[in-house]
Design a protein around this nucleic acid. Structure first.
Lengths: 345, 345
DNA sequence: TTGTAAGCGTTATCAC
DNA sequence: GTGATAACGCTTACAA
């Protein structure tokens, strides 16, 4: 049943090493031998066993990715980039999902990776609360190279992230440029690093413009459209003369749009709304949503490129590879939900 | 640097087999020895090498999944179910993405799986055109057990799928029940099996109700919101007295909603709209969208459960395991976009 | 250009 | 209870 290199060698009357050479296209082999071997491979239906090869060559050609919230727009797009680049570089990809992104018990999944001798790890779980605490532990020393996504860059770690703060600045500045003066914000859960960055971007932009940042302009959401609805209701209550809202993702913006309509406001005339993420649906909201586009597929691709360099460096036992952060700038996508000049009071 | 079983054995003055027993919790071992071994493991930072284990035990405890379109709602949710169930059953999961779902050149990715000796494969690529042609080839014989998702059930294959036709029937019947009489459809790309099923469900329901199925009630979309817009425009042109539309996914329904509004129609009074998928945003469309919910996470979980049984059967070389199809029934989620009785003409 | 021997890190077999 | 020894399927020296 199981066909091995030896079987092929026997059938084609050569040494196993010769078959190995044919399979891996290495060394000089006479045409006749090669053809004979290939015929035997064909005939027996031989498939090389990469596990055995890994054992002796000390390389698994496998990367692993730990992700969370794959149901959502961001993580799934990043994963696409990770997979594509891994494939392009010849790696297999092992996938592990954390059921809860704020999970702090990460050693089981990491142990499994080490046991399988993966050559590198992409940590694609958003930074929430202290779910990065394990980085301080000695766990990290026993691990292969690892690249972190969506987290605060810090020295000694390879991080690839989008500059959320700049994105929020772009969104808020755009609203200012459109003549808006009472700009509220619906934040994400502030335990999330990304949510904090977006909030700070909003805040800084207003302060730099010499405006007051009243607490009545701030409500907290949880990324869901339901929380966007709730947040919008609260904002309209706390600050009836509000003329713009920066919702920290598109789902919350969607919820906010609905409530704004229900309150009888015309968008963007009475109230401008800007989101974050540029989910495909946002171009078809009513009105189409101005939002911040992040190149999440690129984040994934770049992460694997960085990881690949770390893996290569370790293979050649180069020391002192500088671990740096790669930060991508997002882009504002301007649509109807923010475009009209506000009505003069 | 590399610590092996032998190193541990040496340090704790036992045989390698004993260490192996301790690591795998098998056989009877005296408390003293176990502790001594565990201390050595701890001290050396020993991590078992699963690759080596797989080589001798002839099992990799690894499944593989081939998916496509992970950026979209359906595939990403199914993948979540697949990963969760794989983890629960103790398998590692290898992920491969097909850049184009209609790709017909699948042997590279399958070869890679065979080379890695995965014990089973989940084929989570939608059936499009003849992208199932390879199943007829001898490729299948050399493969480990494989479970197919989202495809027409056929004898000799394990398939797990949602009953798209029934979903479409539910949607269309609901519109009939609401008193609608001119019910159009915006289909998905008809090369897709799922799109055809939904189309047939719409058609059959109308025919069974004794209604005519006019070509002017049918337009073809490509799943995108843009195609939903375009389709809606065409429908309104071809059949101005249309009073309901079944859009074959929520994105197209979103596009249709926008155009319907722009045409001055009030939804649901003048025009009822129903979608398919129940993406989270659909509950916040304007108006909230009636749609068909598929338990896609369950599809993934069940697929792995089925696969697990096949793997076990092969291990014990049980023959004649019946390969059956598992079909899940979707559920209609009724919201405002279809609820109101139409205006009496 | 091709072959031989050793070994990668584990588990299975069968002794003790 | 524990230990020697032979696999598992492949590649890397080194030899011919």
């Amino acid at each position: 049943m199981r066909v091995t290199l030896r079987d092929v060698a026997r059938l084609s009357s050569v040494a196993t090493k010769t078959v190995s050479r044919v399979v891996n296209n290495q060394g000089e082999i006479s045409k006749a031998t090669r053809q004979r071997v290939q015929a035997a491979i064909e005939q027996l239906g031989y498939r090389p066993n990469i596990l055995a090869r890994s054992l002796v060559s000390q390389r698994s050609d496998t990367l692993a990715v730990v992700a969370s919230g794959l149901e959502y727009y961001g993580p799934s797009h990043t994963l696409v980039g990770i997979e594509q680049q891994s494939y392009d570089l010849g790696y297999s990809l092992l996938l592990s999902l954390l059921p809860r992104p704020d999970d702090t018990n990460v050693s089981p999944v990491l142990d499994a990776f080490v046991a399988r001798r993966v050559e590198g790890v992409i940590w694609a779980v958003p930074e929430i609360g202290d779910n990065r605490a394990w980085i301080q532990s000695d766990l990290l020393d026993r691990l292969p190279p690892i690249v972190f996504l969506s987290m605060e860059p810090r020295p000694g770690l390879s991080v690839v992230a989008v500059d959320n703060q700049t994105g929020a600045v772009q969104a808020t500045q755009h609203l200012l440029d459109q003549g808006r003066r009472k700009i509220g914000v619906i934040t994400g859960p502030l335990a999330w690093w990304e949510a904090r960055e977006r909030y700070v971007g909003w805040q800084d932009t207003l302060l730099r413009a010499g405006m007051r940042v009243s607490p009545s302009l701030v409500v907290n959401g949880d990324w869901s459209a339901a929380s966007g609805e709730q947040g919008m209701r609260k904002l309209l209550e706390q600050q009836p003369d509000i003329d713009a809202v920066f919702a920290c993702n598109d789902q919350m913006a969607l919820g906010a749009l609905g409530i704004a309509h229900q309150s009888g406001r015309c968008i963007p005339r009475d109230l401008a709304i800007v989101g974050f993420d540029n989910i495909p649906e946002s171009a078809y909201f009513w009105p189409p949503l101005t939002t911040v586009y992040q190149q999440l597929v690129d984040v994934g691709r770049i992460a694997v490129q960085v990881l690949h360099k770390l893996v290569e460096a370790r293979r050649h036992s180069e020391d002192g590879v500088e671990l740096a952060a790669t930060v991508l700038k997002p882009e504002l996508v301007i649509r109807a939900s923010s475009l009209q000049t506000p009505r003069q009071v």
